[in-house]
Structure formats: structure tokens, C-alpha cells
């Protein structure tokens, strides 16, 4: 795998497409335990991102990720704005001025994103948040000395299991935490959007075997 700036933009566009396709599903999940805006917020944010980065194919990967994060911060509106915004901005920082990324970079990116989200949201695993999908995925990638397509597939599976796991636990963060035990039985919208993003990346990387 070699992802250059043009391919990175393609991947982010695909994330935007999949978020948009799941807009109503995410909003439905959020209406059960939150404020019913996750789908629309994320979809608006990523739409703005695709417009912002469309002409950045000649820029380095770090700048593209940083612009993505900054755009999410100012357009999403809900907590997912600063959370995903920080994730992409941190990813941009660790990638720096690279113009090509590989699977090992993907681990570094997702580690930085996870650290950023945990810092911004003051969240740990088991609190019914994005972390419950992202951390298991990062743990799978860390489990081997080098990352490849197969391992990333397992990581995406782990994120999916993480989403399932959020159904059985009490929300400790955000609007859902006001519900206490009543939040049990519902899957977390943030964990779900994280899974959608990881699955979109996986799909994009396997479109063309490069």
C-alpha cells in the first residue's frame, strides 16, 4: 500500500460518502440516547471537508489531515466536532510533511487520533464512546511488528465488536450519561461513526491493490 496525497483525499471523500449514507442511522441512534444530531452534524462536517480538501492533491498528507480536522472543528457543531477534529489534527501532526503513507503510518495515525480523542473527551474504554471502537482497533494493529491489509481487516472487525460492546454498558460521557442505566441496550453513535470511518478506510485501501 502506498497512499499519496491524491489517494488520501479519495479516502477522506469515501469516508464522507459513507457517513452521509449512514446519516439517518446515526441520527436514529443518537435520538435514542443523545440529542439526535450526530448523523446530520457528521454529514455536514465531512461535506465541508470534501470541499476544503478537493484542491489539496499537491499538498503533503499532514496538511490534508490537519485541514480535515480544522474543518470538522468549525462545522460539526456537537461534541464530535472537537473530538474528530482533534483526532485528524493530531494525525496531521504525526504525519507531518510526508507525501506518501503506508500501513505502519496508519498505526501511527490511529494511535495519535486515539490519544487526541481520549485527551479531548477525558474518556477511557468502557464509557460508551468513540474510544470503545477505536481503542480495540489500535490494539489489534499494535499486536504485530508490522501492519498489513489483513491485520487492518482484523482491526476493523475489533472496532465492530467494540460497537456491539457499547450496547451492554452505561454511558458515562455526554448527553447520554444523563440517562444512566436507561442507556443500556443502545449502541453508541460515536463508536458507530468511528467504525464507519475505519470500514471506509479499509474499503478505500482495498479498492485498488497498489
Amino acid at each position: 500500500m502506498a497512499v499519496n496525497s491524491a489517494k488520501l483525499i479519495e479516502i477522506i471523500n469515501l469516508i464522507a460518502d459513507d457517513i452521509n449514507a449512514n446519516k439517518e442511522f446515526l441520527t436514529e441512534l443518537d435520538s435514542a440516547i443523545g440529542d439526535a444530531d450526530h448523523g446530520i452534524n457528521m454529514s455536514k462536517g465531512f461535506k465541508a471537508v470534501t470541499e476544503k480538501i478537493s484542491a489539496m492533491a499537491d499538498k503533503d498528507c499532514g496538511s490534508i489531515l490537519k485541514t480535515t480536522g480544522m474543518t470538522l472543528v468549525s462545522t460539526v457543531g456537537g461534541a464530535s466536532g472537537p473530538l474528530y477534529g482533534t483526532a485528524f489534527m493530531r494525525a496531521g501532526q504525526v504525519v507531518g510533511n510526508k507525501t506518501e503513507l503506508n500501513y505502519d503510518d496508519l498505526l501511527v495515525i490511529l494511535e495519535a487520533a486515539l490519544a487526541g480523542i481520549k485527551m479531548r473527551g477525558k474518556a477511557e474504554k468502557g464509557e460508551k464512546t468513540i474510544v470503545d471502537a477505536l481503542e480495540p482497533a489500535v490494539e489489534v494493529l499494535r499486536s504485530s511488528s508490522s501492519v498489513d491489509a489483513k491485520l487492518f481487516e482484523k482491526a476493523v472487525e475489533a472496532a465492530k465488536d467494540g460497537v456491539e460492546y457499547t450496547k451492554g454498558i452505561i454511558a458515562k460521557k455526554g448527553r447520554a450519561s444523563y440517562l444512566g442505566e436507561r442507556s443500556i441496550g443502545h449502541q453508541d453513535p460515536g463508536a458507530t461513526s468511528t467504525y464507519i470511518i475505519l470500514a471506509a478506510i479499509h474499503k478505500a485501501l482495498n479498492e485498488k491493490s497498489s
Binding site: G77, G78, G81
Partner: peptide
């Protein structure tokens, strides 16, 4: 307060 397209939300840069 609010987002740049007049939805409910907050914006760290604003």
C-alpha cells in the same frame, strides 16, 4: 454560539 450555517452547536475557533 451556533455553527457557521446556523445550526445548533459550538465552534472552538469561533
Amino acid at each position: 454560539a451556533g455553527t457557521s450555517d446556523n445550526r445548533l452547536g459550538t465552534d472552538a475557533f469561533l
